[in-house]
Structure formats: C-alpha cells, structure tokens
C-alpha cells in the first residue's frame, strides 16, 4: 500500500511561489464555496449574447471561470455544452501524468479545440486543430492541484462550446518524482517519435505516439521552459491532416492518441514539428 508516490514536484515550481500555490492547493473546494460565483463584475460590453456562458452558471462552479472566459474567449460566444466531453480520473494518481481525453465529436465542424485547467499555474495545456482527424484527443497533463480540466471546441460559426470535469489531485504536490530526463539518454533521443498506426473498424486510422521530451514548465527555479510547441501530421503525399500545439502543462515524454477519419494512404503518416528552442521533430509512423 502507498499513497500516490510521485506527484508534482518539478511542476510545483519555484520555491518563492510555492507557498501561495500550495495554500490554494490545500483547499480548492473551500475556495470554490467561499467565493461568490457572481463576484466578478460583468463584462462591460453589452453585446454578449444571452445564451452565452457569461450568463450561464459554470457547471463546474469554479471561481476561476470568469477569468478563464475573459482570457480565452473575450467577446466571442461561449456556451457550456455537454457534447464536449472531458474524461480523466476523478482523482489523479500521478499528478505529473494525469490522463485526459477530450471528445467534441458530437459537434458539427469543429475547427479548433483548446484544453485548459483553471487552477494550473500555466492554465492552457494545448491547442488542437483536428482537420482530417476526429475532434478528439488523448494525452496526459501535469496538475498542480485539484482543478477543472476543460476543453473548448470552436465550431465553424465561431461559437465556443465548453465542457469539462473536476480532477482531484489529492496525491499531488509534495514528493520527488523520479524524472528520467535527469539521465543523459534524453539528450540523444530528444524529439524521437515512437508511434504506431492502427486501422479502425470505421475505416479511419488511429495514431498513437510518444515523443521524447522533458516538457519543462519553466516554473522550477533555474529550469527554463522547454517544451514541444508544434506537431503537424501529414500524409504520404504531403497533405496536412492535423495539428497539435502542446504547452508546458503537457506531461514529460508526451503521448497522444488521435483518430483520423480516413485510412492513411500507404499506411504511413509523417510527424513534423519543433520545440520552443527550435529542435526539430521529423519522423514517419507506420502500422
């Protein structure tokens, strides 16, 4: 028996900010119930549509929602929509690797998806342009503390549809992770793509891949942010199929699951991209 063995130290970050962060970490539920939901002044624009999430109560009842809405969506129309599903564990066993799947395939014409966690010190986790893929994506993130994890899908009409789930990170925060990137191996293998394709019964193609990268957040003192920022998936003829833009909260050695609507010609796909220091990603993935 053991309580969670390796929660989020690297993520927890600079000692100077740790106290404040942990203070909120200790009592997310308390914060949620003690801050009146309507305490944030309404946006000054009078053009906000009535159905927008500005007037809908946040189903996750997070005191941070109003800030999230302002910073991500500004004056755009935002609705809470159960067709955007976020699945993950109710309780994070490993705060450095919280598995999350987002699924907006119940919506028509999703052009863009973003994922964020209200209470993470870096809120936004990634952006996803599904393109020729289903608007759903599996990945893992680091969670600093209990938080809503949300996905927002923008449909062709410009409306953002938001869904989410609370993830409790009780195991999190205080123990030393055994981070493999302390070994020299990562340097030789940086941006190495280990991936595989699986044909799907619906005629599509599943891509799973794991990319070697430390994905440092920049919040730990002396360790600058170092993360993959762009991944483009193309087919053998060079057509761009899909794009993932991860940010710091995506877990070390990130792994992704995505489903392309059609089988890959030649049963192979190309993965290209770069990290924020300009190191390239360039690999083929086959069945």
């Amino acid at each position: 028996m053991t309580p969670s063995a390796r929660p989020a130290l690297a993520w927890i970050a600079a000692a100077t900010t740790a106290l404040g962060m942990l203070a909120t970490a200790a009592a997310p539920a308390l914060a949620a119930s003690s801050v009146p939901a309507a305490s944030t002044p309404a946006p000054s624009t009078s053009t906000a549509p009535t159905a927008a999430a500005g007037t809908q109560a946040d189903p996750l009842d997070s005191p941070r929602w109003e800030d999230m809405r302002k910073s991500f969506f500004a004056d755009a129309t935002v609705v809470f929509d159960e067709r955007v599903r976020v699945s993950g564990p109710a309780v994070a066993e490993d705060s450095l690797n919280v598995p999350v799947s987002v699924d907006a395939s119940g919506l028509p014409a999703v052009e863009e998806l973003i994922v964020f966690a209200d209470f993470n010190p870096i809120v936004k986790a990634l952006r996803f342009e599904p393109g020729a893929a289903q608007p759903r994506l599996g990945f893992r993130i680091k969670l600093q503390q209990s938080s809503p994890v949300r996905a927002a899908a923008r449909t062709a009409d410009g409306v953002w549809h938001v869904g989410g789930a609370w993830v409790t990170a009780t195991g999190g925060g205080c123990t030393l992770p055994s981070v493999g990137s302390g070994s020299p191996e990562w340097q030789e293998r940086l941006n190495e793509v280990n991936g595989k394709l699986w044909p799907r019964v619906d005629g599509g193609e599943r891509l799973r891949m794991r990319i070697i990268h430390p994905m440092d957040t920049g919040l730990a003192a002396g360790i600058p942010a170092f993360h993959i920022e762009d991944i483009v998936i193309t087919d053998a003829e060079g057509r761009t199929l899909s794009r993932i833009q991860p940010l710091e909260p995506v877990s070390e050695n990130p792994s992704f699951t995505l489903d392309l609507r059609a089988a890959a010609p030649g049963a192979r796909l190309h993965v290209a991209g770069r990290d924020n220091n300009g190191n390239r990603i360039d690999a083929w993935v086959t069945r």
Partner: peptide, 15 residues
Amino acid sequence: MSRSASSAPALHRRP
C-alpha cells in the same frame, strides 16, 4: 523510420 530529428547536441540547457 526516420530518426528523430533533431539536432546537434547543442541542446540548449539544463545541467
């Protein structure tokens, strides 16, 4: 197939 890319071991950072 392709070896991941990158790069000169001129990797920026982290001792």
